[in-house]
Structure formats: structure tokens, C-alpha cells
Computed example of a mutant assay.
Amino acid sequence: MDYNDLAAKARPALITASMRRSTMTYGELARAIDLDPDVPLSHHIRRVLDLVSEGCIGRKEPSLAVLVINEKSGEPGPGFRAGKTPWHTETRRCFDRWRPA
């Protein structure tokens, strides 16, 4: 599995979500990047989102990974919620950064 390729597919999907001022569930992202539905999402999506986030940090952008949420809780995963910036603040930063012109 090429995680870099999956992250490259995830980035535009997440930018589109941000431009729409919306979020995506883990399952929606998996479908958007053509992740095999028989593969457990937890490990693979986490790695993809780590790479997306690293790319955002390198570009000095808010982390698009915050836009991927748990379907039941409506919040990003525990790894993101444990960060220094509150997840809802980072979500707002994404919406502001990728606001349609």
C-alpha cells in the first residue's frame, strides 16, 4: 500500500471539504481515496492523515486532518484532540484558509 499516494489523493478531497465548510467521516475519506473496503480503516487512515498533516505543517497550513471525524462523535480522533490547539479552532483555521474566492 502506497501511503504517499493515498495522502496525495486525500489532500484535494479534504481541501474540497474545507472549501464547502464541511467535514468527512473516516469512511467517506476511505471511499474518496479508493481505499480497499476490506482493509481495516483505523491503521491505514491514521497513516494517511499523518502524512497529510505533515504536508500541511511543511506548508505552514492548518492541518486538514482535523476535518476527518468519527461518524458517531462528530469529532476527530483522539490523536488530534490531544494536540495543543483545540480541534474546533483548527477546523475554523482550515475553513478560513481554504475559503472560496
Rank of each mutant, 00 (worst) to 15 (best):
G83T: 08
V48Y: 05
L41K: 13
V39R: 11
R92M: 14
G55R: 14
T85H: 09
W87F: 15
K84V: 07
I15N: 02
P40T: 09
L35F: 03
E54C: 00
L64H: 03
R11E: 11
E61S: 06
S63P: 03
P78R: 14
D36P: 00
G27V: 10
D36M: 08
M19C: 08
E28K: 14
K84M: 02
R81I: 02
V52N: 01
L49Y: 07
K9F: 02
A82D: 14
P78A: 13
R46F: 06
L64Q: 12
R93H: 10
D34L: 10
P62R: 09
M24Y: 02
K72W: 07
N4V: 06
I57C: 03
T89K: 15
S73N: 10
R20F: 00
N4Q: 12
D5F: 01
S22N: 12
H43N: 13
A82M: 06
E71P: 03
M1G: 09
A82L: 09
H43C: 07
D5T: 06
N4E: 07
G79W: 06
E90G: 01
P100N: 04
R20E: 15
V48T: 06
A13K: 10
T89D: 15
A8F: 01
P62S: 09
R59E: 15
E54Y: 01
G83F: 08
M1L: 07
M24E: 06
R97Q: 09
P78D: 12
V39S: 03
R81M: 13
L51D: 00
G79C: 05
W87E: 12
G74R: 11
A101K: 13
D50R: 09
K72L: 14
G79Q: 01
R11G: 07
A65H: 07
L41D: 00
E54M: 08
T85V: 15
A7M: 05
A82K: 15
A32Q: 07
S73W: 00
K9I: 00
R11Q: 00
R20L: 09
I57R: 14
N4H: 08
R99E: 03
F80M: 14
A10Q: 02
R47P: 03
A82S: 15
P100C: 03
H43K: 13
R93L: 14
R99T: 04
Y26C: 10
P86V: 05
P62K: 13
R21H: 13
N70S: 12
P78T: 02
G83V: 05
G79N: 13
L29V: 02
T85G: 04
D96K: 10
Y3T: 03
L51Q: 05
M19K: 15
V39W: 00
R92N: 11
I45K: 04
K9E: 00
C94G: 06
V39Y: 04
T91G: 00
H88P: 04
V66C: 10
V68T: 11
R47C: 00
A101D: 07
T89I: 15
D34I: 04
M19G: 15
W98T: 02
P40Y: 06
I33K: 05
T91K: 15
S73K: 13
D96C: 07
R97S: 08
G58S: 12
E90T: 14
H88M: 13
K9M: 10
R93G: 05
C94L: 04
